[in-house]
């Protein structure tokens, strides 16, 4: 399997830690986890991409769907650890300003605790 996903609770944030490649065949795994969290109206949700080597447009679409579902119940959806390469894809698709993006998990958790 080229994608590993772990969900951990870092009070008060539910962090989804993604490692590997998020592509056409592995992104359904990430979607399944995000759908389960948003169905339970979890907030805040943080998706940490620090260990993601590659994220294609299906990965982007999965994150957009997660964000949208979270916004429906006025939850907070954050991303962290975006590499320069992945950031370029976000920029080209004009998604940089759509997501709340933090440099690290710690920075995201701190922003919630403030």
């Amino acid at each position: 399997m080229n994608l590993e996903i772990k969900t951990v609770y870092i009070d008060p944030v539910t962090a989804v830690q993604v490692a590997g490649e998020v592509d056409l065949y592995s992104s359904p795994q990430l979607r399944k986890i995000l759908v389960a969290l948003t169905e339970k109206r979890t907030t805040p949700i943080l998706v940490d991409l620090a260990e993601v080597r590659y994220l294609d447009s299906s990965g982007l679409a999965t994150l957009i769907e997660g964000l949208k579902q979270c916004q429906r119940y006025k939850g907070r959806f954050m991303l962290s650890g975006i590499s320069e390469e992945v950031k370029q894809v976000f920029e080209l698709t004009r998604l940089v300003n759509v997501f709340e993006i933090h440099a690290t998990v710690a920075a995201a958790v701190e922003s919630v605790s403030k």
Binding site: L24, Y25, P28, S57, S58, L60, A61, I64, E65, T93
Partner: peptide, 19 residues
């Protein structure tokens, strides 16, 4: 060719058209 959910495909399609 993919196991993607229709919701994901719809967003991807719009992303590509935006591109």
């Amino acid at each position: 060719h993919t196991p993607l959910d229709p919701a994901t495909i719809q967003i991807m399609t719009r992303l590509k058209l935006e591109l």
